[in-house]
């Protein structure tokens, strides 16, 4: 075993949790978050100059992560990624890079909260039950006193409305 970690391992140790959280917040599931996190660090091995300033390294990593997420959505759903993320291409982290994404994710929550609050009651309710309280479709249906099939239709319509609102809100 190595006496001291090498430069890549050091960069990795410093940033793996932050990058993972950053990615997870955008794809919402562990398998994809792990794949994208791995992609970021493999790209780092190929392209990152570890002798750069720590701040520059952090900025580089988060930019690569940002692009990896965008590519993920593009490749899987064949659409241009618009509005879903508000990080400018040249986004640079604050003084403490690992904290910066966490702060941003707080902003993301605020945005989602605001979005939910602008939805009609039943739409808001179904999304809260499904995603914030993590109920299954069956549990949601029973909590709302509707059929299983209706709960699926309702969550579909609620998301559609929310996605449209989100888009409008970006302008």
């Amino acid at each position: 075993m190595p006496a001291a970690p090498g430069p890549f391992e050091q960069v990795y140790t410093t940033h793996v949790v932050g990058i993972y959280r950053f990615v997870y917040a955008r794809v919402g599931n562990r398998p994809d978050a792990e794949d994208l996190t791995a992609q970021v660090f493999i790209r780092a091995v190929e392209q990152l100059d570890t002798s750069r300033e720590p701040r520059q390294i952090a900025a580089w990593l988060y930019r690569v992560a940002q692009n990896a997420v965008a590519d993920h959505w593009r490749a899987f759903y064949r659409l241009p990624v618009v509005g879903i993320d508000h990080v400018a291409p040249g986004w640079e982290p604050a003084e403490e890079p690992p904290d910066a994404p966490a702060a941003r994710d707080g902003a993301t929550s605020d945005r989602l909260r605001h979005l939910l609050d602008t939805l009609p009651d039943r739409y808001r309710r179904v999304l809260e039950l499904r995603f914030l309280e993590r109920l299954t479709v069956a549990e949601t249906a029973s909590a709302m006193g509707i059929s299983h099939g209706n709960a699926k239709v309702l969550q579909y319509r609620a998301l559609r409305r929310a996605a449209l609102l989100g888009e409008a809100g970006d302008g």
Binding site: Y24, A25, R26, V27, G28, N29, W73, Y77, L79, V81, G83, I84, D105, T108, S109, L112, L115, L127, F131, L132, Y156, L159, R160, A162, A163, G166, E167
Partner: peptide
């Protein structure tokens, strides 16, 4: 867009 929004909510 709906899928992305759902992913963000699930993550949040």
């Amino acid at each position: 867009e709906m899928a992305q929004l759902a992913a963000e909510m699930a993550a949040a």
